[in-house]
Every structure is written in structure tokens, then in C-alpha cells.
Nucleic acid binder design. Structure first.
Lengths: 232, 232
DNA sequence: CAGTGGTCTAGACCACCTA
DNA sequence: AGGTGGTCTAGACCACTGT
């Protein structure tokens, strides 16, 4: 199970960039130089560079070279608020019901996101109420080796995301918003009427470049929406 | 200026997929078969397949084969990208049908957002296609006093948001994402099956603190999602 | 001119799955 | 055992840019 050579090269270059040893606009070694440095063929070095270009880390100019790309300007607009604060800010009451707590071997999809091959994963399912109306179903998977005591927490006192943010401070997050029709069980938990869709938010959170947790958040579409405000 | 061989192969495969000759879940020819079909080396055929996997059109399973994936388009919550660039970046074709152009007195809701009480407002309804599949219905209201020539534009050449951004550069934006069940007319335009919800994005854009335009964007939920990536 | 990225070839070995 | 994708090599020619 050794790491492919092109990944070793890509990781090395990525590290130089994120550690600011190579700065924005710098030219990185050419494909030929990289292949010599790592005793690889040019095609292999090239594959590493291609991957980083796809990641948006590098930029290539034919006949000129490959350069560290300027990172995209991103305003800190998308807050990762936790549901309890959100509800309290509206002056409403927040209640939590923990539906299940499990320790399990991850299925493929979760394993891939958490990149925890042989690692244990904890899973919790929690229902959040706003003034006794179900507002969010939280299905959360946690990298057990990074947060070993996760399952021992009392999530009625402190939400899972509050706890995670304390033990493994958030450094990065990926979010995805979709509209779905609820399954029967989801419809039941969220107390949905016929023909009411759900917002599904998939959120992967990272702490120091390691994926810590992936969660699926389901909201009744008639009671919830996501907003953002962007200043340029 | 001839097209690279891997692009010829990729275009051919993409065409098979978007023309529904190869359906979702179908296995496509193996790398070896493709290389024989196009008199190319396996590496070249592979590069074509890799590109289509990156585009989200195909999915590979080691030892099993390469399969047509159910594609989900996606856009970022953080960027105000216009739909045409988004589609072109995915290597797809963008087509536009202008359903209506109107000059009108705003109703209360739009007036409030555009804060143009007695001011004229333009309204356009535009349907956007990605590879001949309807992907976005755009219902847009524009502050006529700030963009007087809006209705004279040919939105098949330049999207409405491209034009607006040129004449009144974006300084601020508010966004809202909801899940809704489509109305009959919306369901018809987006060519939706029964029981498929929609993502509704409401976006108000500002230029130098003045609201310029408010638009409602409707997407088929089975073909579209919104993503964001947050670095802290 | 030498160096760069862009493309391409004809092999190779591997791990894995299915038959 | 034969097919699949995953990785890798050691060459090759091209168009282009800098000096």
C-alpha cells in the first residue's frame, strides 16, 4: 500500500506552496527537473503537476513554466454557525433528541471523504427542535482517531459541532447544498407534509488539513433557507 | 491547429453520453478498446477518460470498468459566477432562450428590494440550457434608471449578468438558497419529472450600494447543487 | 539555440474482479 | 486465466518563448 510516486511529488510541491516556501507567482521546477529530483519519468512528474493545476494551486504557461497561482479571493462570508446559536439568536428555544450513537467501520463514501481507511468512525444522528418543531436532522460521521471521546459527550448540553470545534478547531470547510425529496423516515422525523422537499447540506470540516467530520444536515424546505452576504 | 487525439476521443465519448446513446450507468468501452478504436495508445485513450471523469461525466471502478455517471452540476456560493462560464468550464455547451422581455411597474416585493418606488423596472425571463438540457430558469428584475438599455441587449450573445457586471460593476450581493416544489409552468420549462424539487436562489446584486437587480434562479434539484469551500 | 510545456507511443507490472 | 483500471518508463516530436 505504498503511495504512488506522482502523489509523493504532488504532496511535496503542495507542501512547498502551502508552507509559503514557494510564493505566489514563483516559478516551480520544470517537469524535467522534478522528474530528475524524484528519479521518476517526466510523465510521472507531469501527472503530479497536472493534479495540482486541477486543484487550482498551480498555473502553467507553455514555453514559460509552471507558477504558483494567486489564491482566489474569498470573503469570510460563509459562517459555520451552529444550529443552537442560530435558534437562540431568533429568540427561540432549542431542544435536542439524540436518536443514535454508533461506532462503526465507515462505508466507502464516508471513508473516502474522511480518508480514514482502516480507521474507526463514530456516527450520531441527532434531531434539533426550534420551539418544539423539528428543524434539522443531523447525521454526522466523525474521525474517531482524532476525536476519541466523541461518543461520551452529552449533546443536549453542547452541540456536536460546538464540541468538535473545541477539541479540533475548524480550519477549513466544504459545503454543498441540494434540494431533495425526503425519504419516509426523514419525512417522519421532520414531521413533513406530503410533497414538501428538503434542503440537504453536506458539510465536511477540516482541522489542520485533516478531515474531522462529515455531516448531512436535513431541513424542512418550508421552514428553512440558507443565506449569504458577499461584499466585494 | 489540429485537435489533440485525446480530445477527439473525449469529445466522442461525451457526445455519446449527452446524446443519450450511452445511458447513466452504462459501461463504456475499456481503455484498451478505445485505444484500438481510435488507433491511439492506451495512455492517450486514458487521458481522454481522465478528463471526462474530472468533468463528472464518468465514474471508474478498478477491475470493473468505466461507467456513465449521473452528472450533477454545481456552483459556488462564494463566487458570483455567471451560468455560461460555469457551463463552459465543465466543457459543455451553453444555449439560451429568452422567454420574455418586459418593462413594468414593480410589484410590492420587487419594489421593496430594488427600492425603486415610482421607478420603472425591466423584467426578463431566460431559460439556460446545458447541452440541450434546461438547467436554469432566470427571472430577473432590473432597476431601469440605472441600466436604461438593458432590454436592448441580445442575451444569447452575452448573459444578462455579464452585461450588468459590465455597465454596473458588482460591489455587493445577497443570496438565499431554498428548496421548493416547482409550479406547473416552472416544471414544464425545466422539463422536470413528477416529484422533483427545485433549488431556488434569490440573488440581489448591488453596485456602489445601490440595488441594481434582483433575480430568482430555479434549478432542477436532480441536476444541480451549490457548493462552497471555506478557508479560515 | 536550449528550455518549456503539450502531445503521443509501445511497451511494462500490479492489484483486483469475474468467469 | 483474462480483462479492468492504476501506475510507470524511456523515449519521441511539436510549437513556442527567451537569449
Amino acid at each position: 500500500m505504498t503511495k504512488p510516486k506522482y502523489k509523493i511529488i504532488a504532496d511535496h510541491v503542495r507542501d512547498k506552496v502551502v508552507s509559503k516556501q514557494w510564493l505566489e507567482g514563483d516559478r516551480i521546477p520544470s517537469e524535467t527537473e522534478l522528474s530528475e529530483l524524484f528519479l521518476a519519468s517526466r510523465m510521472t512528474a507531469r501527472k503530479a503537476v497536472e493534479q495540482l493545476v486541477a486543484e487550482g494551486l498551480l498555473e502553467r504557461s507553455p514555453s514559460i513554466g509552471t507558477f504558483v497561482k494567486a489564491p482566489k479571493a474569498q470573503s469570510s462570508l460563509l459562517e459555520i454557525k451552529n444550529i443552537r446559536d442560530e435558534i437562540l439568536e431568533r429568540g427561540h428555544e432549542h431542544k435536542v433528541v439524540v436518536l443514535s450513537k454508533n461506532s462503526l467501520v465507515p462505508n466507502d463514501k464516508v471513508a473516502l471523504e474522511l480518508s480514514s481507511w482502516d480507521v474507526k468512525v463514530y456516527k450520531v444522528v441527532i434531531l434539533h427542535f426550534e420551539n418544539n418543531t423539528p428543524i434539522q436532522l443531523e447525521e454526522r460521521y466523525v474521525n474517531a482517531s482524532f476525536v476519541p471521546e466523541f461518543l461520551d459527550q452529552d449533546f443536549t448540553k453542547k452541540t456536536s459541532s460546538e464540541y468538535l470545534n473545541k477539541v479540533a478547531p475548524l480550519s477549513e470547510a466544504k459545503m454543498m447544498v441540494e434540494a431533495i425529496m425526503p425519504s419516509k423516515i426523514l419525512s417522519h422525523h421532520l414531521n413533513l407534509n406530503e410533497n414538501v422537499p428538503c434542503l440537504k447540506i453536506t458539510r465536511t470540516t477540516f482541522s489542520s488539513h485533516t478531515p474531522i467530520s462529515i455531516c448531512y444536515l436535513y431541513y424542512p424546505a418550508d421552514k428553512y433557507r440558507v443565506t449569504s452576504h458577499l461584499l466585494i
